[in-house]
Simulated scan of single mutants.
Amino acid sequence: MAQITFKENPVTLLGNEVKVGEKAPEFKVLANDLSEVTLADSKGKVRLISVVPSIDTGVCDQQTRRFNEEAASLSNVEILTISVDLPFAQKRWCAAAGIENVQTLSDHRELSFGQAFGVAIKELRLLARAVFVIDSNDEVTYAEYVSEATNHPDYEAAINAAKEAK
């Protein structure tokens, strides 16, 4: 299991760590309009999944903006940002930030994504910072569990993995 800290304090992650080469686990999250979204909804596409603790914090804001900017160079990739923020807060944040190339999704209801991908922080009921790339056949081709939740992920590695995925 990935060893994660939050503000330098160790935390417990629920679920199983997802590894490159494995089939991506199914999950159920909410779109900004409260409709359910699953992995199967984007079947046949490459997905870059950016996981953030809370969209309203500095690093999470920067991470989401960075992947939004990179979307132009990732024409065959669907970019999803998942957090436990309420869908209404995500929608309001996206409108204020001008985010149009990333779909924000909420895992607040069931922690379905967090537990399926091993990023649900037990002590905080937040998601640990992570990035996953899933190819069109639902295989995980890239997985980064950021060891300190307040640090940035390796943007270049994730973007390159998304460009290489088929």
Rank of each mutant, 00 (worst) to 15 (best):
residue 27 F to G: 09
residue 28 K to H: 07
residue 28 K to L: 06
residue 28 K to Y: 06
residue 29 V to Y: 01
residue 29 V to K: 00
residue 30 L to W: 02
residue 30 L to K: 06
residue 32 N to S: 02
residue 32 N to V: 07
residue 33 D to E: 01
residue 34 L to R: 04
residue 35 S to L: 09
residue 36 E to K: 03
residue 37 V to D: 03
residue 37 V to K: 14
residue 38 T to P: 15
residue 38 T to H: 14
residue 40 A to F: 05
residue 40 A to L: 07
residue 42 S to W: 11
residue 43 K to W: 07
residue 44 G to A: 13
residue 44 G to F: 04
residue 45 K to W: 11
residue 46 V to C: 10
residue 47 R to Y: 13
residue 47 R to C: 04
residue 50 S to Q: 04
residue 51 V to H: 11
residue 53 P to F: 11
residue 54 S to C: 02
residue 55 I to W: 03
residue 56 D to Q: 10
residue 56 D to T: 04
residue 57 T to G: 05
residue 58 G to H: 12
residue 59 V to C: 07
residue 61 D to K: 13
residue 62 Q to P: 05
residue 62 Q to A: 15
residue 62 Q to L: 15
residue 64 T to N: 15
residue 64 T to H: 11
residue 67 F to R: 12
residue 68 N to T: 05
residue 70 E to F: 01
residue 75 S to N: 10
residue 78 E to I: 09
residue 80 L to H: 10
residue 80 L to K: 07
residue 80 L to M: 15
residue 80 L to S: 02
residue 81 T to I: 07
residue 82 I to Y: 09
residue 83 S to Y: 01
residue 84 V to S: 03
residue 84 V to G: 00
residue 85 D to I: 01
residue 85 D to C: 03
residue 86 L to P: 04
residue 87 P to K: 08
residue 88 F to K: 00
residue 89 A to C: 00
residue 89 A to W: 01
residue 89 A to P: 07
residue 90 Q to K: 09
residue 90 Q to L: 11
residue 95 A to L: 03
residue 95 A to K: 12
residue 96 A to I: 04
residue 96 A to K: 13
residue 99 I to K: 15
residue 99 I to M: 07
residue 101 N to D: 05
residue 103 Q to V: 11
residue 104 T to Q: 01
residue 105 L to T: 03
residue 106 S to D: 02
residue 106 S to T: 13
residue 106 S to A: 05
residue 108 H to D: 12
residue 109 R to A: 02
residue 111 L to A: 13
residue 112 S to F: 09
residue 112 S to V: 08
residue 112 S to E: 04
residue 113 F to P: 02
residue 114 G to N: 05
residue 114 G to T: 08
residue 114 G to I: 03
residue 114 G to Q: 09
residue 115 Q to I: 05
residue 116 A to Y: 13
residue 119 V to P: 12
residue 120 A to Q: 14
residue 122 K to H: 03
residue 122 K to M: 09
residue 123 E to I: 06
residue 125 R to E: 12
residue 126 L to G: 02
residue 127 L to Y: 13
residue 131 V to K: 05
residue 131 V to N: 11
residue 132 F to P: 11
residue 133 V to T: 06
residue 134 I to V: 15
residue 135 D to K: 15
residue 135 D to N: 15
residue 139 E to T: 14
residue 139 E to P: 08
residue 140 V to K: 12
residue 140 V to Q: 04
residue 143 A to N: 11
residue 145 Y to D: 14
residue 145 Y to K: 06
residue 146 V to C: 12
residue 148 E to V: 09
residue 149 A to R: 08
residue 149 A to C: 15
residue 150 T to M: 11
residue 151 N to I: 02
residue 151 N to F: 12
residue 152 H to P: 07
residue 152 H to S: 15
residue 154 D to V: 10
